[in-house]
Amino acid sequence: MTPGSPPAEAAPPEAAGTRRAAALRVRAGRFPWPLVVPALIGLAFLVLPFAGLLVRAPWASLGTRLLLPEVRGALWLSLTTATAATAVSVLLGVPLAWLLARTAFPGRRLVRALVTVPMVIPPVVGGVALLLALGRRGLVGGYLDAWFGVSLPFTPAAVVLAQVFVAMPFLVISVEGALRGADRRYEEAAATLGASRAVVFWRVTLPMVAPGVAAGAVLAWARALGEFGATITFAGNFPGRTQTMPLAVYLAMQESPESAIVLSLVLLAVSLGVLVALRDRWTGAL
């Protein structure tokens, strides 16, 4: 009863009636405070920095900044490279996840650990590692340069590669989990119906793990979109060619925090918009 409510004796008869009915209703269990309180603290922790950005944002100049060609260029580059990186991650990551989940080979545990390495090492180190491997004088890059005249660093392709490096592990882990959780007897059923292993994979396994692939792809896309360290190290920073939004944000930070905030908000708004739109399309998939 709220402090201001009238005492029970003074309640009109119909109110007393509803109160009696209420007394007969099965009481819900105690409110789950032990779960709700940490949940709300966790949510606040995630949302508060975002609120900080919103409060400090120079709203008046938001529109004009959005129209700046450098900003549009960086945004477009970010969206296209993150999408390309996600596509590459799916193309390579799903078979890799399948290999990890469905086959037994010596050293599989080691391979799985290796797959997660990019999640653990600082992205800048990842960028240096990419340079050492695929750079002009890198392990493989040296041959690419010598034989085909292909030099990857400082190109949009390098941006995509850096993003794939950091994003693909998220996809592999998500899909591997889905594959392990999938009921393999459906694959057996398909085999008894005459499906070759390839057909089983395409028409039975993949549809079964589609939610896992979708979730992994969204994680990978988000990770690729926010990627900074490996990109700036491996692909460098050049507006229109390799300067993605996070790089633009970082450099804007050097001059004026306000413009960095605006750019961050643009990136956040666009990525949230895309994720929400996708989520609506794949309801239940995530």
Binding site: R185, A189, T192, P207, M208, A210
Partner: peptide
């Protein structure tokens, strides 16, 4: 299995949900 002229009905049918 895919090369055998065998049809199988599984205990819980295993129909493809998709």
């Amino acid at each position: 299995p895919e090369r055998r002229p065998v049809g199988m009905v599984f205990q819980d049918y295993l129909l493809f949900d998709h």
